[in-house]
Design a protein around this nucleic acid. Structure first.
Lengths: 212, 212
DNA sequence: TTTTGTGAAAGTTTTCACAGCG
DNA sequence: CGCTGTGAAAACTTTCACAAAA
């Protein structure tokens, strides 16, 4: 099956399936069926089978999916077999919290560079990683072969920083600043937006109230 | 138009439109048209018009949308006219970073309670808010009329905490723990998942490589 | 004239039912 | 017999074209 044709919605669910499969693996389950994955992942069995069918014929009829083989296959498709190198741009509270997040190391993603503009921070070594002057952004990103930029800057400078990391050849950005980045389409952007999420939750609270 | 029938995809975009409108307002634009909103929001004009049409007939043909009126209308629909009271459950690095995030106050959402299980933290007052013992979760949530719970606990306890906040009558959860929460459907959950986002970006990096 | 609001078309995603295979 | 893989149906979302209104 053509890998290009895997729908984005399926891609978005693969990390969730992967997490479930790793849990199954840790429970010593050699095989799991679509119902089992669906229950763990909070979806339904046909959805799981359809999603996995885009990756190829990975299951065995009458049996289910081999847990180890499926983990290997999804990991490869998601590019998790190759170690990813991330940079944190903007080392305030949030950047600092993310650096300490164990999720990076667990998923083959290493923070290899940190940037800030505050002279008091530049040169310090949180968790052994030197904080660099954001003035040197482009050269350091290229030198350290960074593939993912994590933007935790103030909103005012996020667009500029996005343009600069993109110009330095970084093609994946995780943006925590509440602004929609305008950058070339070959750069993948994932937006994490706290106030948007809170507002969506607020809508649900308001709706509950309206129904009652 | 029936408010119940506003599609979830539209709801997800309303906070983005709102942000654009507030920017327009700060630029002293009294009126904006669908093209203007679309450009700021990174979408297209028919999408904006379709989305806004679900909320009622809010525009003026030949003119566009009154910025103040549209802000008021979207804010009301999202329930932002009413002040929201949030609690942070789990005060590690991430919880601490979120407490300092200015996005809360700016959007009428106040952190009114913090919970942790660490005796060294309980009783301290970061930003003037007392850290409570998680043992008192239910009573404090009810007492302080919390409507949104922000879960920043370790992954192992997130499901238990979700059940407890739901049992205490909280019907909106923002979950940062990398686990799919199983709770009654009347509780709205928004998942913010760093490692999932990184894996999706990793897929895009892998795909670029495959294409080249 | 300008720009909204909307029905219809096109595209996408999810669900379903069952053929097909082990 | 059990469970996957999949084509077809249903549901949902986006795009389009244009009538209608200011």
């Amino acid at each position: 099956m053509d890998q290009q044709s895997v729908p984005q919605t399926t891609i978005n669910r693969l990390p969730i399936y992967l997490r479930c499969l790793i849990r199954a693996q840790s429970m010593r389950m050699p095989v799991i069926n679509s119902v089992g994955i669906a229950e763990m992942a909070g979806t339904n069995a046909p959805q799981v089978r359809k999603d996995l069918s885009y990756l190829g014929e990975l299951g065995t009829r009458g049996i289910g999916y081999d847990v180890d083989a499926l983990i290997a296959h999804i990991s490869r498709l998601l590019g998790l077999t190759r170690d990813r190198r991330a940079a944190i741009v903007g080392f305030g509270r949030l950047g600092s919290a993310l650096l300490g997040y164990p999720g990076f190391g667990e998923h083959g993603c290493a923070v290899v560079a940190i940037f800030d503009s505050d002279p008091a921070k530049i040169g310090t070594l949180p968790l052994g990683i030197e904080i660099r002057d954001v003035a040197d952004l482009e050269s350091v990103l290229r030198e350290l072969l960074v593939d993912i930029a994590i933007l935790t800057t103030p909103v005012e400078v996020a667009q500029t920083m996005a343009e600069r990391v993109a110009a330095a050849g970084v093609t994946a950005i995780l943006n925590f600043a509440p602004v929609r980045l305008e950058i070339p389409p070959e750069v993948a952007v994932r937006q994490v937006d706290l106030s948007t999420e809170l507002q969506i939750l607020s809508f649900h609270l308001a709706e509950r109230r309206r129904v009652e």
